[in-house]
């Protein structure tokens, strides 16, 4: 349960996690509008009244939380935002991560230009040339990712 501070960092680490564990990792997006009438927020309001004297807002403020979670290794990366300007960018980011999930190669303009109708299965030479490098990258990333996860877990326990 780690909240990352920037969306770029979340995107980078999530893509590494997906490259290491593409099958088990899932990405969930939560859009939550808090219910200000619920007891939870009633209490927090009272505290605010005593400390600050005034209520800040009557309009509920929604939050958007992105979470990449791999149950096999226990790595959980989260990102929280409340800005509407982020929504479009983050979801196109999810599309980019979706390419890892679908086992598609990373989007590059050259590849699209070369094989508009050919498809991936019809170009075995490209696949074989690119896969060893990709495999190396993945095996290198996997241990670092798990190590990162362990560190994070330790932090959580403290």
């Amino acid at each position: 349960m780690v909240y990352l501070s920037t969306s770029e960092e979340w995107q980078r680490q999530s893509s590494m996690l997906l490259q290491a564990r593409p099958t088990t990792t899932r990405i969930t997006t939560k859009y939550k509008i808090p219910n200000l009438d619920s007891p939870k927020y009633q209490n927090s309001k009272k505290r605010k009244r005593t400390t600050e004297g005034e209520e800040k807002e009557d309009v509920p403020r929604a939050v958007l939380v992105l979470k990449a979670y791999d149950p096999a290794s226990g790595v959980c990366l989260k990102l929280k935002t409340d800005r509407q300007a982020d929504v479009g960018r983050l979801i196109t980011g999810l599309g980019r991560l979706g390419r890892y999930m679908a086992a598609l190669p990373e989007k590059s303009e050259d590849a699209v230009m070369e094989e508009p109708s050919g498809g991936l299965a019809l170009n075995p030479s490209d696949n074989t040339s690119s896969t060893p490098a990709a495999a190396d990258a993945k095996t290198q990333q996997a241990p670092t990712e798990s190590a990162g996860g362990n560190k994070k877990k330790k932090k959580g326990k403290k």
């Binding site: 899932r26 990405i27 997006t29 859009y31 509008i33 808090p34 979706g98």
Partner: peptide, 9 residues
Amino acid sequence: HGAIHLSQK
């Protein structure tokens, strides 16, 4: 109020 949960895998 309420929440929407989206997931992809």
